[in-house]
Computed example of a mutant assay.
Amino acid sequence: MTPTIEQSFVRQFEHDVLARTLWGEARGEGRDGMRGVASVICNRAARPGWWGRSIAEVCLKPWQFSCWLESDPNRVKLLAVDGRDRAYATALSVATDALAGILPDYTFGATHYHAVDCAPDWARGRTPCVVIGRHAFYNDID
């Protein structure tokens, strides 16, 4: 069955938003770091509710991914990046795998993460299920 124009547009939008989120959140972490962030996004989307009901809704939910905050100094770069940037090309590839449902979840179902050099209140007293690069991932946050 051929997708409608609307379905194709939504799919392209989701791919673009996911890739930009991966670039904005983990461009210095390489493919494995981007896979971890993509897994968190997919895990949230698989549990529709507060986080959103789609990949794009999860990515764009206010205050969830700092790269989308209007006050983030890198937001202008995030909106302008294209495939000539190596890290963005990697993000596009990871986003393709995630949307195709073939991305392995090395985060063990994580729905949260943070950079290891910060300590958010929600992580206090919890042990990460995995650390990938400079990000700690958690699968025990309600």
Rank of each mutant, 00 (worst) to 15 (best):
M1G: 14
P3I: 04
P3W: 02
F9A: 08
R11D: 06
R11M: 05
Q12S: 13
E14F: 11
E14L: 11
E14D: 15
E14K: 11
H15F: 15
V17A: 12
W23L: 11
G24S: 03
G28I: 02
D32E: 11
R35M: 04
G36I: 12
G36T: 05
S39N: 08
C42I: 11
R44V: 11
R47M: 07
W50Q: 13
W51Y: 14
W51F: 15
G52L: 06
A56T: 06
C59H: 05
L60V: 04
K61E: 09
F65L: 10
S66C: 01
L69M: 04
L69V: 02
E70Y: 15
E70F: 13
D72C: 13
N74Q: 04
R75D: 04
V76W: 09
L79W: 06
D82H: 10
R84A: 10
A87Q: 15
L92F: 04
S93Y: 01
V94A: 04
A95G: 09
D97P: 01
A98Y: 08
A100R: 01
G101T: 00
I102P: 01
L103P: 11
D105T: 13
Y106D: 12
F108D: 15
F108I: 03
H114L: 05
H114F: 08
C118Q: 15
C118G: 09
A119C: 09
R124A: 12
R124C: 14
R124D: 11
R126Q: 14
R126V: 04
R126N: 08
C129L: 08
V131C: 11
I132K: 02
A136D: 13
A136F: 11
Y138G: 13
D140T: 09
D142F: 11
